[in-house]
Structure formats: structure tokens, C-alpha cells
Design a protein around this nucleic acid. Structure first.
Lengths: 119, 119
DNA sequence: ATCGTCCATCGTCGAACAACGATCGTGAAC
DNA sequence: GTTCACGATCGTTGTTCGACGATGGACGAT
């Protein structure tokens, strides 16, 4: 799945690129049902995953290695957290050659916010 | 299950009483740290607990028995969920004779919202 | 073709969670 | 006093989570 841009020079880790949508509007999403909201809240209910989300928000793009470097966790553990966030619809990842670039999914985040705010 | 009518004249359920604060303003709370936010999100990350929160929001007050009557769960399980929500600071409970009256903790909910919205 | 890097996945282990029935304490009613 | 209803807590069971090392696939470079 996923397509790649593939215009990038071999310069690796950080650089000002955006992987996904350039931060679309986060509005007008209806609050989700209890099952969906519970799943999203569970994905967020871990300090490491909150740290990842914040990291992605601040840097606006990260490959897996960047996240691993920032957290005191093993690579496999970080990859697992990224998978959980991705399956919850809170982040997006696109394969970029040998690495994977992640960014926050603004729509998913908006859905979560809508659900929480509707409580 | 469980007796609701018949013998007992213990008419209890609804009545217009408020147990806690009369819905104070929910503003100006700072977003919590990752640990606190994760704990609150975990408390919310269950469909039954979301249902309880919604129930308390709509009815504005509930004794435990009311909640048990609305959910397809055993009394002990509901009591457990109520405990988790209370320890997370999302609801308040005050003992009222032989029963316990619960209501949402607007401040706690505001903290949760602030944390989620700050993502 | 071979090698090295990056990262997702697998397998495992201990800890935490979810649900339940059973029990106990407490307050109201008799 | 006794009795009853209410609800929190205990003890158990099965499931899920969180972390890790190890494995393997994909890609770029040599």
C-alpha cells in the first residue's frame, strides 16, 4: 500500500518535508460512536504514544529512526506503538525507500477531539 | 435484572437533585502532563465507561443502581467502572444514605479535553 | 551479487485489565 | 434488636497489553 514521492535526494533523517496532507482543516467531523472513541482513546492512553504524537506534531514529520532516537525504548517497541497509533487512525505512515515517514492524521485527531468534546 | 418494582416502596431513582457542583464553568484549565492525560484517556478508553459518562451527563445524577439498570453488566462490574472513573477524576460520588450518587466532574472532564485538544 | 541499513513482524514473558459471583459493611425500615 | 436493600470490595479466571530480543524482508550502496 501507499505510494511514494521519490524525488528526494539521499539526504536522510531530518529535513523540512511533509509526508501527508499539509495540515487540512480539522472541522466538521461528527463525534464517533462509543466503540470507535474507546479505541482511539485507548491508542492515546499511553505516555509513550502521547510523546510520539507530540513529537510528530512539533516536527511535522519523522521517520521511525527519529522517533526511536527520542524515546528510551527499543526499536521494536516504538514500531509497535507506531502501529497502534496508525491502526487507530491517528497517524499516517508512508514508505519512503528503506524507511517509513510518519505524520499525524489531522482527520483522525479531529474525530478524537470531537468525541472527547462531546462528552 | 434485580428488583426494581414490586415489594419495595423505595422509590429512589430519579428526582431533581444535584449531587455535586451545579456544572461550573469548564474553562481555563491547563493541559496536563503525559502521565495524567494517559491515565484519564485510559479511564475513558472503554465503551461501558463512555456509556456511563454519557448517562451521567444526560441525567445529571445517578445512583449506582440506575447505572446498573442501564447497562448489560453485573453490579460488581459497574461498580468497578465507577471506581475507575472516580479515581481518574472524571466523576464524583457522594454517599447518600445506603446508596451512592454519582455525577460528572466538570473540572476533570475539562482537564481531559484540554489535554486532547492540545495534541 | 553482496552487504549493510532500516523497520515491521514474530515469539515470549510478566503485568494489568475485564468480568463475574460471593462476601461484607452500612444505613434505613420494621 | 432484626432484617433488608444497596453497593463496595475480594478472589478467581481468561484475555489483553507492554516490553524486549530475534528474525526477516526491502531497499540502496558498493
Amino acid at each position: 500500500m501507499i505510494a511514494a514521492s521519490a524525488t528526494a535526494p539521499t539526504n536522510s533523517s531530518n529535513s523540512s518535508e511533509h509526508c501527508c496532507v499539509p495540515t487540512p482543516v480539522d472541522t466538521l467531523v461528527p463525534p464517533p460512536d462509543h466503540e470507535t472513541l474507546a479505541a482511539m482513546a485507548k491508542a492515546v492512553a499511553h505516555p509513550a504514544r502521547l510523546a510520539i504524537l507530540q513529537l510528530l506534531t512539533n516536527r511535522e514529520t519523522c521517520v521511525t529512526g527519529d522517533v526511536v532516537a527520542e524515546l528510551p525504548l527499543a526499536q521494536s517497541t516504538v514500531s509497535e506503538h507506531l502501529r497502534i497509533l496508525r491502526e487507530a487512525g491517528l497517524i499516517q505512515g508512508e514508505i519512503e525507500g528503506p524507511r517509513t515517514r510518519y505524520c499525524v492524521d489531522a482527520t483522525g485527531l479531529a474525530i478524537l477531539r470531537a468525541g472527547i468534546n462531546a462528552l
